[in-house]
Design a protein around this nucleic acid. Structure first.
Length: 268
DNA sequence: CCCGGAACCTGAAGGC
DNA sequence: TGCCTTCAGGTTCCGG
């Protein structure tokens, strides 16, 4: 499931294949994946547009197009963007046909992902909070974000309007690294704990990018390869297995309907 | 503003 | 073996 490190990897590896290419057309096999505009406006608006840039914001991918506007993709749970020249893989929901004969296959078994063509990306991205790897993301900012929130710290970390790009896996990993129980009310954390969490978040995300993301389920890089970040997970998706620090079995509890993995001894 | 729950989807996994 | 139920989770929307 693509979170910030996975989307960053996709952006990095897709970029050399698509920038300065022209989109000949787009095929939608599942029109409901298109959020805006209408299919007719989309088809006419996307054809013969040159891709002048590719960037990531939170978990969104933004294809900048010449003449203004951009194509924004969200992979949600199960989406991948695969570059290829052959027939589309199973579960392909859309194909972006490029002018050199290659294609971007939007593969998405669960049909949660979406595409949208907009004039100004701000209209979509304005709801997002700070980028956790930007220099502007400081322990003070994190502390202030937690200040009025009594919801479980795990739930607050997943709030994209505060911090953009953290998902279930990396929230669990960062909380373990910082030694903080996921159910703790966010506004109950001390300054020291918030500082530890801030540092843990950056560390966990940066290392996962170095490992090209985590292929726990259906995540593939644009060339079809998997990432290796999941093999370094210490608690995420490791229910029942021993904590790497103390050997206590990793527990799994639901927080806001999301499986949350943690060590009951190391995380107070 | 803050919080929690349902809805959107379908393949995989588990129960009987 | 096979049918049925449950689970997985990012985001949006809605009600309290």
């Amino acid at each position: 499931m693509p979170e910030l490190p996975e989307v960053e990897t996709i952006k990095n590896e897709l970029l050399p294949h698509v920038v300065w290419r022209t989109i000949k057309s787009v095929t939608l096999y599942w029109e409901r994946m298109l959020r805006q505009p209408s299919p007719a406006e989309f088809y006419s608006g996307i054809s013969e547009r040159k891709i002048t840039g590719l960037s990531r914001r939170g978990k969104y991918l933004v294809f900048k197009l010449d003449g203004g506007g951009c194509l924004i993709a969200h992979l949600k749970m199960s989406g991948s963007l695969l570059i290829g020249r052959d027939s589309p893989p199973e579960y392909t929901r859309a194909i972006i046909h490029l002018d050199d004969g290659s294609n971007i296959f939007f593969r998405d078994p669960r049909k949660f992902g979406n595409l949208q063509l907009v004039k100004d990306s701000v209209t979509v991205l304005c709801k997002l909070g700070i980028e956790p790897l930007s220099p502007d993301f400081t322990p003070e900012i994190l502390y202030d974000s937690f200040n009025k929130r009594k919801a479980p710290v795990k739930a607050v970390l997943l709030d994209q309007s505060l911090i953009a790009g953290i998902g279930n896996m990396y929230a669990d990993e960062a909380l373990f690294t910082a030694g903080i129980h996921p159910s703790r009310p966010a506004n109950n954390l001390s300054r020291t704990e918030v500082k530890r969490l801030h540092s843990a978040l950056r560390d966990v995300l940066q290392k996962a990018i170095g490992n090209k993301g985590a292929s726990v389920n259906t995540y593939f890089r644009p060339g079809g390869e998997q990432g290796t970040a999941h093999s370094h997970f210490r608690v995420a998706h490791r229910g029942g297995k021993p904590c790497p620090a103390c050997g206590t079995p990793i527990q799994r509890i639901p927080i806001r309907h999301r499986g949350s993995y943690f060590c009951p001894k190391c995380q107070a």
